[in-house]
Design a binder for these strands. Structure first.
Lengths: 224, 224
DNA sequence: TGTACATCAGTGAACGCGCGTTCACTGATGTAC
DNA sequence: TGTACATCAGTGAACGCGCGTTCACTGATGTAC
């Protein structure tokens, strides 16, 4: 459904039958053929991001994005099926960037059990990435409530948890896989909650909170 | 601003100057004077709740709520300033109910340090309440992303944390207040994240997850 | 304890505009020969 | 290496409808005497 098709434009009239499904399928249009497209897509995403920062999620709309990007609406609809697709791409890119940074960091960790200091560094890194992205707070929030984005967030958490489990089992093959799965998933969601807490309450002491939270998670993963 | 005023209807035209503020101020209209009103308000909230369960947040709208409640739109607008006010009331009631249940439970806990079993019971209780409310998952999600509701959620977390801190200081006056504040806040947000995880991923083993998470939180609160 | 009257609660009908989306078209790119 | 032509990318202009919201009104409640 997302593959490159020879059909002229791929009529997405099929989706109108179930309006609930509107946001979900075929987020992106067929592969762009000219390099101009990539610049346009980047401009759309950057504008959406900047506008989220400026006006928040409720007031974001396609016309506003186009105006800010110096484009006309049909240009947006050439690249994105609808406005949810724009948000989805934004959410996916943030999640992917965070995941990649995390995986990169994990490569440098020798021991199977992550130290509190390592986890604190990890949490601070995730927080810094969300802060660096304009409108990051709104993107994170949308990842909780917009149907198309909820699964993006859950997939990211699951991806991280799977990675941690695989890593653990590789280093300690005797471990109980399903206990591990549950515990790492809990750790990941708790960590994500702390990052979001810091985004929502900037008056909190970032270092103190990440260190305490890291202590909580590390202690938990070190086992009973 | 929310108090009972003698002015006939309180024109909310002031809010139109700043459209961002639209959702925030004066969620509820002036106090109802007839008992009929309470029944109507309940019907509106119940309908909204049921519709969230049926069609999700994106497709919820005032006309739909009115239709389901067997009312005409002006009846809704007599009691709620706008559609966000309906969601806000729904969110506030769920948060309040969860908070009250939690406080009630805490009264029965003699020791200053909560046992893992106690925290597990607590988490299961919070989860059960959200499940019992129709559309509870959507309400919880909106509490992350709808501007008017974000503060409702944060206030609830802060309220719980404050309660726990006060309780702790009462039982152990020598404790360091600001460390306590930070640690309880982390515990509350981690706990809430676990409850939301269970709502989002119903295939998870509720008992196992709550027990593990309770172990994590209890261990953390027991200190370094 | 009944009734007149002020006030409150809900109706019928519609408005208007914001916003997602599309149509028919022009201009830009890249590629085959 | 130049040019003709197919295809791709973006424009101008508008549409239409969903949805929040309101106006002028009628019917229901409660209370003062």
């Amino acid at each position: 459904m997302r593959k490159m098709v020879k059909l002229p434009e791929m009529p997405n009239t099929t989706s109108t039958s179930d309006p609930q499904a509107r946001a979900a399928p075929g987020a992106r249009r067929p592969q762009p053929r000219q390099s101009r497209s990539l610049a346009t897509i980047a401009r759309i995403l950057d504008s959406a991001s900047a506008l989220l920062e400026q006006v928040g999620f409720e007031r974001l709309n396609t016309n506003l994005i186009c105006e800010h990007a110096g484009l006309t609406p049909p240009a947006l609809y050439r690249h994105f099926a609808n406005k949810y697709a724009v948000m989805e791409e934004l959410g996916r890119r943030l999640m992917d960037a965070q995941d990649d940074a995390l995986f990169e960091f994990l490569k440098e960790q020798p021991a199977v059990l992550l130290t509190p200091a390592a986890i604190a560094t990890l949490l601070r890194g995730q927080h810094a990435m969300a802060c660096a992205q304009p409108g990051g707070r709104w993107i994170m929030r949308s990842l909780h409530s917009t149907p198309a984005l909820v699964s993006v967030r859950l997939q990211s958490h699951q991806r991280i948890a799977s990675h941690l489990i695989a890593r653990h089992l590789e280093m300690e093959p005797s471990a109980q896989a399903d206990d591990l799965a549950r515990r790492y998933r809990i750790a990941v969601d708790a960590g994500a909650a702390i990052v979001e807490l810091l985004l929502d309450q900037p008056e909190l002491d970032i270092d103190a909170v990440t260190e305490d939270a890291a202590e909580m998670i590390a202690g938990f993963l070190a086992g009973r």
